[in-house]
Design a binder for these strands. Structure first.
Lengths: 306, 306
DNA sequence: TCCTTTGCTTCCGGTGGACGGAAGCCAGCC
DNA sequence: GGCTGGCTTCCGTCCACCGGAAGCAAAGGA
């Protein structure tokens, strides 16, 4: 429900708080006049988070000084806070003196219903899909204007992807992203359509009107086919996962070599499998029966699947 | 490196900070005399962590009042802190008003090298092991006196397990745990052997002398077979995963029906596959080549362990 | 060997933000 | 209507956080 649009204008508008830039040059006693006392309006928790945000996939291990510099904190302050974080286990200090994200923090994060909770129930279906295609299978949810990848099964020989578990991508360029956007609250859609659409390849949709039509098509078909929009060599087929109240809570996709490349795969053949897996997950997480289908599916039957 | 034993007695002795119990009754102005001001010696970060610790697998969603009660904080204080946590994304508030662990926290936790970093590289080997056995495959690391499960692949028809991703178990009762313990620093081993060994089934090892012999056997064979120590119906075969400097950083296991049950599996047949997978992972994460050493086991070598 | 640099840790006085009681508010229920 | 339980806001008090400065240790360079 973070930055969701059930309320018109929640406190946190949509994105995540940006990382504070480094202080202008190293000019001490410059603009921020307040010489002593803490910098204006910053809470302790805010500083703690700014420390955690310093870590990312390209910087998994940092020394105290690096943390202090990147989080724009005095070294002594960073020292104290980092010490408290490490004492609890949110950070761990390696033999080299560098700090890393700690196991304890991962443990708590694993309780997030929208990540691991979802993942656990989706896993059997993802496995099946993976077995059937032997390519890349992905599970993602939406957070603000971005898709967050919750799980990824990648065959070593499959097309190489840019996504990572825990990584983010803009919604308009990926298969799962387009699905999540197509079923997002109108406010979110308009907001994305209003902002400039960054281009990754020559095939990325950058025209809002085209994107709008694409989204309508996805809503109609219940599936998205996204060819070469992030990487010209790969194509993804994505479908929505629905939860309680029939709301779209996640999306799955299969990523295969684009048919325009040697060894490419025709997307048409993948659509049924992806859609079936998405429906399976939806049922597993408590979605109501998929409309008035001819089949009288009974959601509560403990169908052994196998 | 949390609570690791390179230093004899770090600040945090070994376990995780215990959850503070509820205040004695509801007696106000009772024992804790300090009527105003914050409770003795508690830091802001400490309170934030105490809030996060309130969540566990059995309590994934809590209301403000429940959080305040469980964390032993005044409601107004909890309200402020929870608000800051939710603003950042560490918590999310559902439509029902309850708070849950947020996606953002999971995202940061995913950067922990000992969890997701390890998992990513181990996954292909775990997949293969899963395919070969169609049972349960697990990956775990040690934190203090407990094993933490980092990944688990479970076939729907396989033996039901009590472990969960992100869950903890004492080291002496599980296959991966015994492996992790066998190769843990001597201080940790002695500490575990000195403490009472809780029993889960009639087969759980509770005698320190027996455990000591078992660990020696595991070091000798490079594999642990653990039959019915948590659940009489299941048996696990585990092997160590080594990292840089040849230190044991994780363990993997396959859990199958115990041979003493109908449909049970003879562990002997699984050993080669588990060992091979463990070696594969070790290689993938940068362990030195296994070499042909007739294992002159040196658990206590000062080697800086990197 | 001495000096410099870089980074980490400890210390301590001042103060501004955290604290939490109290009051207000809103549903749901008897 | 009155009541209960839970959530939110407000504001005066005060103490824990803050961060400059000094001390330490290790790594390089002359």
């Amino acid at each position: 429900m973070t930055s969701d649009a059930s309320k018109p204008a929640p406190a946190r508008p949509v994105g995540r708080p940006r990382r504070p830039g480094l202080p202008s040059g190293s000019g001490l006693t410059s603009s921020a006049a307040r010489s002593t006392g803490r910098a204006g309006g910053e809470t302790v928790t805010g500083r703690v988070f700014s420390i955690l945000e310093v870590f990312d996939h390209d910087h998994p291990a940092l020394t105290l000084t690096e943390i202090a510099r990147a989080a724009a904190l005095p070294v002594s302050t960073a020292h104290r806070l980092v010490g408290e974080l490490a004492a609890w286990g949110a950070l761990e200090r390696g033999a080299d003196g560098a700090y890393r994200i700690g196991l304890r923090l991962w443990e708590v994060g694993s309780l997030a219903p929208r990540s691991v909770g979802l993942r656990e129930r989706a896993m059997p279906f993802l496995e099946d899909l993976y077995e059937a295609t032997r390519q890349n299978v992905q599970l993602a949810v939406r957070d603000g204007h971005e898709g967050v990848y919750v799980e990824r099964l990648a065959h070593p020989d499959a097309v190489r992807l840019f996504s990572r578990v825990g990584g983010r991508w803009p919604l308009h360029g990926t298969g799962v992203g387009q699905v999540l956007l197509a079923f997002a609250p109108p406010v979110v859609q308009e907001s994305v359509l209003a902002a400039p659409l960054t281009s990754f390849t020559a095939r990325t949709i950058t025209d809002p009107a085209v994107l709008r039509r694409t989204l309508a098509g996805i809503r109609r078909d219940g599936v998205a086919v996204c060819d070469g929009m992030i990487d010209l060599a790969s194509l993804s087929v994505a479908a929505p996962v629905r939860g309680e109240g029939d709301a779209v809570v996640a999306a799955i996709s299969v990523v295969v070599p684009s048919p325009s490349t040697p060894g490419g795969i025709e997307p048409r053949t993948l659509v049924p499998a992806v859609r079936a897996a998405a429906r399976g997950i939806s049922r597993a997480i408590g979605a109501p029966t998929p409309s008035r289908t001819p089949r009288t599916l009974r959601t509560d039957v403990p169908r052994p699947s196998s």
